[in-house]
Design a protein around this nucleic acid. Structure first.
Lengths: 197, 197
DNA sequence: CCATTATGATTACGACCATAATCATTAATC
DNA sequence: GATTAATGATTATGGTCGTAATCATAATGG
């Protein structure tokens, strides 16, 4: 059943994209290779021809999830006159809460990944965290470089924590309150011109 | 192999305590009933005599994890003259980061639980989040009740996010920076007498 | 145009999963 | 002290897991 080179590449892309979505939706260990390949429109047959192991795919899927999210954010930021508010409102939102499969890999998979001892995977998450901190450091207003980095780290933690919390809380009112409170709090605290609300 | 009533209760307690630890360490789906019972010093035989299902045990273990953590915190707070700082320094710490098995169930299991459709489990996490918010609302200084609740929600999100992030980052320097930055930031922002650092 | 080679479908493996029935043992009860 | 009832050890079941070998197919390289 040999297929053309471009088909091979398309299949490979589709498997990675599918994995990036399903790992975020169901957890890294929440989806098996058989179902994953099936969701990508293939049988599990050729998996180990394309990937060294499931751990190998996990790393590539995590990277893909990040680059997709990253490009989306970059686009929104470029088109905005208040990049930080744009980022916060996009990240800490009910849309993001309700669609983990297209959302941030940190909120969706960090707790899972922390339990994996795969060094490549952990290293990958390390870079992602660094990149997020770097992005936020650039967007956070005023102060010394050190103060900006601190504010960025705190903001990132608060953003991720709010999404994780909002996803586990079943009461829509409380879940929504968490989203609204944190997004408003972050926007206010880092307001463009440091007016005090 | 019938045993005395007190032995039964001891066994049951041990299973729940073991589950509360292992679910936090390995994830809710990261430990099977056979290994779990073995870790509790039993065989899987009598499991379904004591628990309706694994989901049933999960709920009880999550509750146990919370009450244990909650009592520990209550004790520390009662013995402190700055309860909020005590709580923050205890929660956002390298000890907590490195010992998820005895730590906060939200940081360890919320992402897992959000993917389970077990209503009892979700409801359980809902109450836990509410309780944490209630506790923090009492500890946060000054302002209106509404402002205090908002500050509490933001603080909880930041605390949980920081622990999740610090656990997944493999570089000890960055992981420690996250812990230090967030704990200092929270303590400063909610300083007892609202001095501006 | 033929030989080579890469692709993915099929099938299989051993391990583990949650769940459950069977059964020897012994505490509780009368 | 004999009967009853409950506990947990053993064993089984159907399913899924990651991994891998086998093999028909067809695109590629000469």
């Amino acid at each position: 059943m040999k297929v053309s080179k471009e088909t091979v590449e398309q299949n490979r892309e589709r498997v990675i994209a599918t994995a990036a979505r399903l790992f975020r939706e169901r957890g890294i260990d929440g989806i098996g290779l058989v179902d994953l390949m099936k969701a990508a429109g293939l049988t599990p047959g050729g998996f180990y021809r394309q990937f060294k192991s499931k751990d190998d795919l996990i790393v590539q899927a995590v990277k893909r999830a990040y680059t997709d999210m990253s490009e989306d954010i970059a686009g929104r930021i470029a088109a905005s006159d208040d990049p930080l508010e744009t980022l916060v409102r996009h990240y800490v939102s009910d849309y993001h809460r309700d669609d983990p499969g297209q959302g941030c890999g940190l909120a969706a998979m960090a707790a899972d990944a922390a339990r994996h001892d795969n060094p490549a995977l952990r290293e990958c998450f390390g870079s992602i965290v660094s990149n997020y901190i770097g992005l936020l450091t650039k967007l956070v207003p005023g102060g010394t470089a050190k103060a900006k980095r601190s504010a960025a780290i705190s903001a990132l933690a608060e953003m991720i924590g709010s999404v994780v919390l909002s996803r586990v809380v079943p009461d829509p009112a409380l879940s929504g309150e968490i989203i609204d409170t944190v997004s408003n709090d972050l926007v206010k605290r880092h307001a463009k011109s440091s007016r005090t609300a």
